[in-house]
């Protein structure tokens, strides 16, 4: 589903990703772990098409297309979703407006009819309930006055409504208590299917107790330095990232 080859990217003048290779086949859940500053969020932003990141080399193919050629909204319509690490607040735009406009843009792209207000509301309420969210938050402005945990749930709500093919979760566990973490994980797990793939970016392995990955990658120094199964995440938890920095340095 996703094939990244030799990806280099910078933020401003600063190179962050330096020749990153990563393949995520359809139907799998891959975790990307790594120390702070290793480039995890930059990778997520490249995939979503965030304007703050400039790609300097490499290719990203998504379902056979050149992902980097697509505008951010085209990526979303093609089924790429990024749950942001720091979701912003948008006063005056209600959650339900955001969800409905987004969903109907995706449906139009697929050649489907837009959902009317009633059907949409039913759908949005059902997903909100799954995440333990009060239905009144649909009428509130996007993330305005939300706690950190509420913002993360709201990201997952958007994911459930938009039903992406490839979901990238950028540190969705940060700022969540254990109950919220379980709710968020169950939302993600409900969406797992042979047609979808997930890229779960996290600093800690505790999220991976609840969203069990098929493959774990370690990102350090702007490239993938180790790839393994779930036990790699447990090993990282035990030993920390310190031993990897040496490995990454040696690999250069």
């Amino acid at each position: 589903m996703l094939e990244i080859q030799g990806l280099s990217a910078r933020v401003g003048e600063k190179p962050i990703l330096e020749g990153l290779d990563l393949v995520v086949p359809t139907g799998e859940v891959h975790a990307v772990m790594g120390p702070n500053g290793s480039g995890k969020s930059t990778l997520a932003k490249v995939l979503a098409g965030h304007p703050s990141v400039e790609v300097t080399a490499g290719t990203v193919r998504y379902l056979g297309q050149d992902l980097l050629e697509l505008d951010p909204e085209e990526r979303a319509r093609e089924g790429v979703f990024l749950a942001f690490q720091y979701p912003i607040e948008i006063p005056g735009v209600s959650n339900s407006t955001l969800l409905r406009e987004g969903l109907n843009a995706v449906r139009a792209h697929r050649g489907e009819k837009p959902l009317d207000a009633m059907d949409f509301l039913k759908l949005a309420r059902a997903h909100a309930a799954k995440l333990g969210m009060d239905p009144t938050m649909l009428g509130r402005s996007v993330n305005e006055g939300f706690s950190g945990g509420e913002k993360k749930r709201n990201e997952v709500l958007q994911m459930l409504v938009l039903e992406p093919r490839l979901a990238v979760l950028d540190e969705t566990d940060s700022g969540l208590d254990i109950d919220a973490l379980k709710v968020v994980a169950s939302g993600v797990n409900a969406l797992r299917s042979p047609e979808r793939a997930f890229l779960v970016i996290t600093h800690y392995q505790r999220l991976l107790d609840h969203i069990v990955p098929d493959v774990v990658h370690v990102l350090a120094g702007g490239r993938i330095v180790r790839t393994g199964d779930r036990s790699l995440a447990l090993e990282l938890e035990e030993k920390g990232y310190g031993w990897l920095d040496t490995t990454a340095g040696a690999a250069r």
Binding site: A48, D71, P72, I90, L98
Partner: peptide, 8 residues
């Protein structure tokens, strides 16, 4: 950018 990332 946020709205665009949600297909708008």
């Amino acid at each position: 950018g946020y709205l665009q990332s949600r297909a708008i």
